[in-house]
């Protein structure tokens, strides 16, 4: 019988080893899997590579994982945030390396990785510093860059509602990178406010089919970065 439900966030992330690559969903605070990230901080894995659009804000969630010096590389499109000093300090110190990727190229690299497409050509970033050292090729008189698909050992994402088969629906713009990350990671872990028995989610509205999800964790009242920061929280 398939049941992907895990008892809590701690058990869901317990086997993430040192040196793992982890895709982390979210755009700004929308869709950031705060409870899974905090469980990962508690768990202690280090020398991690994080693939995420941003690097968190304040000293909670992803920013707190960085601050705990667990992340030695980020693959990211926009690591600056108005109210975070964590990434800039680690980057300037040389502790955390950055691979800067245009946002759409990042999304497509992850989608391609999850879809079994090794590489693809995109017009994005042609003629810019981000094209340096990349193969290019002309099609129909226009230049395109070769970009490689991205996969990861784990994905940590947030949804609204999942079932025990791993089918997921999301909340508004919190969906962002989660569906493609779920496809691209070897082990995909989703936290949702509700986990149901199979059959409660209408198959017509399922966004991420359960085949892409390995573990589901119910977090009934997930925290938001902005609320934690406003409350003065610095994790742990």
């Amino acid at each position: 019988m398939i049941n992907k439900r895990m008892p809590n966030a701690a058990e869901a992330v317990a086997d993430i080893p040192d040196g793992a690559s982890i895709m982390v969903g979210g755009f700004g605070e929308a869709g950031s899997p705060i409870e899974l990230l905090h469980a990962l901080i508690d768990q202690g894995a280090e020398d991690l590579t994080i693939i995420s659009n941003n690097c968190g804000s304040g000293e909670v969630g992803l920013a707190a994982l960085l601050k705990a010096r667990r992340v030695t590389k980020v693959i990211c499109s926009f690591p600056k945030t108005a109210n975070s000093t964590v990434f800039p300090e680690l980057y300037r110190e040389g502790f955390t390396q950055l691979e800067l990727v245009p946002q759409g190229t990042l999304a497509e690299r992850i989608r391609a990785g999850g879809a079994g497409v090794k590489a693809f050509y995109t017009p994005t970033a042609v003629g810019t510093p981000l094209a340096e050292d990349k193969e290019s090729r002309d099609f129909d008189g226009r230049t395109y860059l070769l970009e490689h698909g991205l996969t990861a050992d784990f994905a940590l994402i947030k949804g609204l509602h999942a079932d025990e088969h791993g089918n997921v629906i999301y909340n508004k713009t919190a969906r962002n990178f989660a569906p493609v990350m779920a496809m691209a990671a070897h082990t995909s872990i989703v936290q949702t406010a509700k986990v149901s028995a199979p059959g409660e989610l209408d198959p017509e509205v399922v966004v991420t089919p359960g085949i892409f999800i390995d573990r589901v964790v119910e977090v009934p009242h997930p925290a938001h970065e902005s609320e934690l920061i406003a409350a003065g929280v610095s994790y742990p």
Partner: peptide, 19 residues
């Protein structure tokens, strides 16, 4: 601005102008 020491961040602008 390409200043040394600046934190690079690009977001979606390169995709928008390309597409």
């Amino acid at each position: 601005t390409g200043q040394p020491g600046a934190i690079p961040a690009v977001g979606g602008a390169m995709d928008l102008v390309a597409g």
